[in-house]
Amino acid sequence: MTGIKVIALDCDGVMFETVNANTAYYNDILAHFGRPPMTPEQFAYTQMSTADEAIAHLFPEPESFAAAQARRKKTGYDAYIRYMEMDPDLLSLLEKYNGAYQMAVATNRSDTMRKVLAQHGIERYFDLVVTALDVARPKPFPDPLLKVMDHFAIRPDEMIYVGDSAVDAQAARAAGVPMVACRNPDLDGDFHIRRLNEIDDILMRLN
């Protein structure tokens, strides 16, 4: 190993706490069609999935799926970004690593990710943002992380990926990238952290 050059982060559950935002977003769509709020199982699925996958899960019938997709696109996510809570360690981490490492986002979000970064004033810290719209196959496939490696012309052992869900771990494994499991001790990861500032210790071990 020659050392870590790139740090890639998932968004939901890592950079931001999005429980309130995503719950309100999908429950509002469900309520529009007279359906009850999400169950815990449905919520867990939406947290790991693309928006298209989430709507398909919540509205499995073909006719209702089409209507729900139309409603989702009409509603947009902008009004819900304010409910997202930035991790308390994120800004200091980005400032500390600015110029020392290339920073990337690899997320299953779609057209909302860049708006989230802009509204929280942190877009300038990221050298690359890879969303579900930028790859043929989003997580759990390795495509987002392969795109990061291709962009920076690095090997798998020259980056780390920080995620919190099974799809993150599966993508990292498939790409051969060291996986840092964030706030999920049961997740299959090479490293486990409870706070983002613990990434420092991992980088010291790998560099």
Rank of each mutant, 00 (worst) to 15 (best):
Glu53Asp: 05
Tyr45Met: 03
Leu58Arg: 13
Asn27Pro: 10
Lys74Asp: 10
Lys74Ala: 15
Arg72Trp: 04
Ala31Pro: 01
Pro60Phe: 01
Asn27Gln: 08
Asp28Met: 03
Gln47Gly: 05
Arg71Asn: 14
Thr39Pro: 12
Pro40Asn: 11
Phe33Tyr: 07
Thr46Pro: 09
Glu41Arg: 15
Asp52Cys: 01
Asp78Lys: 11
Thr46His: 10
Tyr26Ser: 04
Arg71Gln: 15
Thr50Lys: 14
Pro36Asn: 00
Leu58Gly: 09
Lys73Gly: 05
Asp78Gly: 10
Gly76Met: 01
Ala56Tyr: 01
Asp78Phe: 11
Glu53Thr: 03
Glu53Lys: 10
Ala56Trp: 01
Phe65Cys: 10
Ala68Gly: 14
Gly76Asn: 09
Thr50Gln: 14
Phe43Gly: 03
Phe43Asn: 05
Phe65Arg: 15
Lys73Pro: 01
Ala51Trp: 08
Glu61Gly: 10
Pro37Gly: 06
Met48Gly: 13
Tyr25Ile: 04
Gln42Val: 03
Ile29Leu: 04
Tyr45Leu: 03
Asp78Gln: 08
Phe65Trp: 14
Glu63Trp: 09
Met38Tyr: 15
Ile29Asp: 05
Thr46Arg: 13
Tyr45Gln: 04
Glu63Tyr: 12
His57Cys: 05
Ala56Cys: 06
Gln42Ile: 01
Pro40Ile: 02
His32Asn: 10
Glu53Ser: 12
Ala68Thr: 07
Tyr45Thr: 01
Phe33Pro: 01
Pro37Phe: 03
Ala44Ile: 00
His57Glu: 04
Pro62Met: 10
Glu53Asn: 09
Glu61Pro: 00
His32Met: 00
Ala68Tyr: 11
His32Gly: 02
Ala70Tyr: 13
Tyr25Gly: 03
Tyr77Trp: 15
Asn27Glu: 09
Leu58Ser: 08
Tyr26Phe: 06
Gln42His: 13
Gln42Phe: 10
Arg35Ser: 03
Glu63Leu: 09
Ala54Gly: 13
Pro60His: 05
Thr39Ile: 08
Thr46Asp: 05
Pro37Tyr: 07
Ile55Met: 10
Glu41Ile: 12
Met38Ile: 01
Lys73His: 11
Phe59Glu: 01
Tyr25Trp: 09
Tyr25Thr: 01
Ile29Met: 09
Ala31Phe: 00
Ser64Trp: 01
